[in-house]
Amino acid sequence: MAVDLGKMADLLIAGKVEDVSNMTQEAIDEGMNPKEILENGLIAGMDVVGQRFKACEMFIPEVLRSAKAMSSGMDKLRPLLSESDSRAAGSFVIGTVKGDLHDIGKNLVAMMFEGAGFKVVNLGIDLDTQVFVDAVKEHKPDLLGMSALLTTTMPRMGEVINALKEAGIRDQVKIMVGGAPVTEDFAQEIGADIYGANAASSVDKGREAVGK
């Protein structure tokens, strides 16, 4: 019997991490097309999660559980997908700038992006400018996210953008900035492409910018 991808999507919406993982494996074992599993199972489920979150029918802990289910399925699928398919939604590198040890907001954004099917590299906190530059060179992400909670560390985001320019790789990547004191104006001022006001809208804007 063929694996029911609609059911997989439902399990993902319900946050059943293990079930989604097992079902993905079953589908693979049955010889189903990995790209089809990804699109009609995992991503289809996450699309519903996204809609329900916006409608206030699902909340962050539930969304993140579904995102975890999505990742568990992706772990099985990734080796089988072509490079372009595994980056289906896009790739995202994110970190908190130098001098700032605040972690949670940035992690939430990272998790939400994972849930949206992005390939995410979370660099951590208190990062030297060079770490961002190196990460862009190494991972060649579609999107780079930076976060700061303190007004004293906010200017570091501009420094990273300048360093990317100097390295000649600024145009390879879309840059998103966020954090409590950051505004749309500030984002423009330092030459970022996207201002992420909160985790959910960051994902929306990120998807849009990447155009996938």
Binding site: C56, F59, I60, P61, G105, L108, N198, A199
Partner: peptide
């Protein structure tokens, strides 16, 4: 300052 994170908006 002990409070909750709003689970709709973070």
């Amino acid at each position: 300052v002990t409070t909750v994170m709003d689970m709709r908006t973070t």
